[in-house]
Simulated assay, not measured.
Amino acid sequence: MGKFSDSIQPAHQAFIEHQKMFFVASAPLSGEGHVNLSPKGMDTFRVMSPSRVAYLDITGSGNETSAHLLENGRVTFMFCAFDGPPNILRLYGIGRTVLPHDAEWGELSALFALPLATRQIIVAEIHKVQTSCGFSVPLYEYTGERDHADKWAEKKGADGLEAYRKEKNRVSLDGLPTALSFPLDQ
Rank of each mutant, 00 (worst) to 15 (best):
K3Y: 08
D6I: 09
S7V: 09
Q9H: 10
Q9E: 15
H18E: 15
K20N: 12
A25H: 02
A27H: 11
P28S: 11
G33C: 07
H34N: 13
S38I: 09
T44V: 10
T44N: 14
M48F: 02
S61Q: 07
E71G: 04
E71R: 03
N72M: 07
N72C: 12
R74Y: 01
F77V: 06
M78R: 01
D83R: 07
I88S: 04
I88A: 06
G93K: 07
A103P: 00
E104P: 04
W105Y: 09
E107T: 14
L108S: 07
A110H: 09
L116I: 11
L116H: 05
T118M: 09
T118N: 04
I122S: 02
A124R: 05
A124L: 06
E125Y: 02
I126A: 00
T131W: 00
S136K: 10
V137D: 02
P138S: 10
L139A: 03
Y142C: 05
T143D: 01
D147R: 09
K156Y: 06
G157H: 07
G157S: 10
E162N: 11
A163E: 12
R165D: 12
K166M: 06
N169I: 05
N169F: 08
P177W: 09
T178W: 01
L180R: 06
L184N: 06
